[in-house]
């Protein structure tokens, strides 16, 4: 049995009109024998692989935000092989164009609030989570932080 988890995210290219860049991470792994027959363990294993992909992509995006110069990176260890791809295309861009991290948009904040209700976290729970994770309040989140949290809560709401 082989498990393959992929996470892909597209963001604008700073300073270039109508361009976006995609960050893509795929991890392929052979699950340990003891979890192959256990559906629940397998589910958690797949989830952890997916989480790892997402974290690596987000980490890469953070670096791009800071350096404003996208670059390529490789991941991989042991039985797992990983690859990240960087690609440009001609899609419309819709984000920031400087090196300063952009604040989360009101649309993102609204969606986070909506998701907090859908996953049973509630408004107060969301505030606490943001403070715990990022050391700031909801209104001070950066775009990339809000985006990461949206992905997490959405995964939870769809689980």
């Amino acid at each position: 049995m082989k498990v393959s988890a992929t996470f892909h995210k597209k963001v604008p290219v700073p300073g270039i009109e109508y361009a976006s860049q995609g960050f893509h991470c795929t991890l392929e792994a052979e699950p340990p024998p003891e979890i192959k027959g256990d559906r629940e363990k397998l589910r958690r294993y797949v989830q952890s692989l997916f989480q790892e992909c997402r974290d690596r992509v987000e980490q890469q995006l953070e670096q791009v935000h800071v350096a404003a110069s996208p670059h390529r990176a490789h991941e991989g260890n042991g039985a797992q092989s990983g690859r990240e791809h960087f690609a440009r295309n001609g899609h419309a861009r819709n984000g920031t164009n400087g090196t300063a991290p952009a604040p989360a948009s009101p649309k993102q904040i609204n969606y986070l609030r909506a998701l907090s209700q859908q996953v049973g976290l509630g408004y107060v729970g969301l505030d606490d989570l943001v403070r715990q994770r990022f050391g700031k309040d909801l209104g001070s989140l950066r775009k990339s932080e809000a985006s990461r949290l949206i992905d997490e809560l959405r995964t939870e709401s769809e689980a």
């Binding site: 009101p106 649309k107 904040i109 609204n110 609030r113 909506a114 209700q117 408004y123 107060v124």
Partner: peptide
Amino acid sequence: DVAIKTGVHLLRSGE
């Protein structure tokens, strides 16, 4: 759309 939803969230949260 964003303004309405922001308003609704502010009211629902009791903020």
